[in-house]
Amino acid sequence: MAMTEAVPTADKPVSPQGAAKAPARWQDFVQLLKPRVMSLVVFTGLTGLVCAGVPVHPFLAGVAVLCIAVGAGASGALNMWYDADIDAQMRRTRGRPVPAGRVQGADALALGVVLSLFSVMLMGMALNWLAAGLLGFTIVFYAVVYTMWLKRWTAQNIVIGGLAGALPPVIGWAAATGTVPLNAWLLCAIIFAWTPPHFWALSLYTSEDYKKAGVPMMPVVAGAASTRKQILVYSLIFTPLCLVPAFTGLGGLAYLAVAGLGGVVFLLLAFRLFASHAGETGAERNDAQDAQGLYDVRAGAKDARNLFAFSILYLTLLFATLLVEHLMGLKPLELL
């Protein structure tokens, strides 16, 4: 996909982050850290740390996971600082602390910078500097490369930017061993390939918001039909990739079963989405549905919603199975 597509990119206003209108509560600062994203990052980072198979002092393991969580939170705060102008225009994000006027942009920036520095330094001192370097790279990649550059410039924003969300298991692995072998990168590759079908399925029924905000998401730039086709292509890459850990001494029998069965369901949902009209006129959400959360959509977008919801469940199951297998000491398959 060309990176130079003519897309309606958002121009960054001079001052998107106005002064706070209401007193900021401490809960608003917690919200800046994107706790839901943080929980997924913690989970995959912990999986990487455990799958490394090297005994780590439990306290240091806890510190490593905390650093990954705080680093992810810092990225979230930096993202909310920079994207306040976009967030203010989208129904899903306009209630965030900065666009809602509860936290000043400068305070969100300060929180993000301070937490980034603390998390990277603590990771370096407590574990090792490879893990700290990877954590620092991830924060910069998400906050600068994705948020400030890719997001407003190309429809490939979430494909390339997905690397930031895919790195936590590598950081966890590095924290445990000081190295990053092929299996660590395999976990990264699985999340990286998962990201496009996951986010594009969501954007198929929220594209009006992105269009209004000038964010060049794939359905806005290439249209719904092309997006559905690309979701299918990435799904055909992603699902076989999920089986690979069973061949490289990382996943066991339970993992193979979950990856195989879940992969079939994932592909089925991707095919159904491909054959549907999701993302075309009439499939958009409205204000009432926004109040219900991301899973309540109009009939035309149900296939997109189903793939979006299942993608979260599938990735969670894959990593949970790996985690349980390694915690229980079950033997990996090593089919190769």
């Binding site: 002092h57 306290f59 240091l60 510190v63 905390l66 603590l122 001192m125 407590a126």
Partner: peptide, 10 residues
């Protein structure tokens, strides 16, 4: 507290 305990553990 984290820095203190990390120092002791390391």
């Amino acid at each position: 507290v984290l820095v203190f305990v990390v120092t002791i553990v390391r």
